[in-house]
């Protein structure tokens, strides 16, 4: 019997669950990370000025919640890129890659679907981690806002998966054990405009940041964190930007994956 997409996703959900169950400390560190980050940034900020000046500079009513949410977003974006882009490399290193490819279905299906559940799970986890913080500052409204941000994060995940698959294809074909994704992580941190406005960056980097989905997700978070009811029009603008990026990245990704599959099976790097 051929394997279906659902089979692959179910298996992957199971291995992610079993992995977390056997590595509880990692689960814990995922939950606590955004708080540590926020604490660090606020503490640094306090050295230079009060919470008030921070509020004015960023033009945000609740800087603590904003930083919490942004840390969560960046963390979840990093997780998606990390999981999806390095998944093929990771499986090659584990020696599980040939057995994944022996699944009776199209190879590209396995390569795309296998990492997705753990990417979704870990990014959701890192967003949910900040739920107590959101409720503490803004009560139920805070929780609602967070939910809205989570939806945007999911939308932002689509182009990120495409981008990561392109990187994964390149890494497989290049054969070197260099991990291209490791270049991407600092780039995402730099270009997402989380911890400072991107206007402070050189023009060329500002331009580059526009092709990174994280920027729009962070801006949407900012909108949501700033106003009680976020401006629908602005939010829609950001969402359409994400959709356009999805089409571009995922289109390219499906081409890249087909080519790299053929190259990999010819060169014998599996």
């Amino acid at each position: 019997m051929p394997s279906t997409s659902i089979d692959i996703i179910r298996a992957s959900v199971f291995s992610t669950y079993a992995w977390l169950k056997n590595n509880k400390w990692l689960f814990f560190s995922m939950l606590i990370w955004p708080y540590l980050m926020t604490f660090l940034i606020l503490a640094l900020g306090m050295v230079y000025g009060s919470l008030e000046t921070y509020r004015e500079r960023l033009g945000i009513s609740n800087p603590v919640l904003y930083i919490l949410a942004s840390s969560g977003i960046v963390m979840s974006s990093l997780m998606i890129v990390d999981v999806v882009a390095t998944s093929a490399l990771y499986h090659r290193w584990l020696g599980t890659l040939p057995y994944l490819l022996l699944t009776p279905t199209k190879t590209y299906k396995v390569l795309i679907l296998e990492p997705v559940p753990s990417a979704i799970l870990s990014s959701t986890m890192s967003m949910l981690a900040i739920l107590p913080g959101a409720v503490f500052f803004e009560g139920l409204l805070g929780a609602g806002k967070l939910f809205l941000i989570l939806l945007v994060v999911y939308l932002g995940m689509l182009p990120l998966i495409g981008l990561s698959v392109i990187i994964a294809s390149l890494t497989l074909v290049l054969r070197e054990e260099t991990n291209i994704a490791s270049f991407l992580t600092p780039l995402i941190l730099l270009l997402s405009g989380v911890f400072y406005p991107i206007q402070v960056l050189p023009t060329i980097l500002q331009g580059m940041s526009r092709i990174f989905p994280t920027l729009y997700v962070v801006q949407a978070a900012k909108l949501t964190a700033t106003y009680t009811i976020p401006e629908i029009k602005a939010l829609l603008g950001l969402i359409s930007a994400l959709i356009i990026l999805t089409l571009i990245y995922n289109g390219t990704a499906s081409l890249a994956l087909g080519t790299s599959e053929r190259m990999v099976k010819k060169s014998g790097v599996i």
Binding site: S3, D7, N22, L94, V110
Partner: peptide
């Protein structure tokens, strides 16, 4: 060729699920 942090049984379950 298996996940180091999973048990033998969990590993088999994973590969069984992949095969439907």
């Amino acid at each position: 060729g298996f996940f180091w942090k999973l048990t033998g049984r969990e590993n088999l379950k994973y590969f069984g699920m992949l095969r439907g």
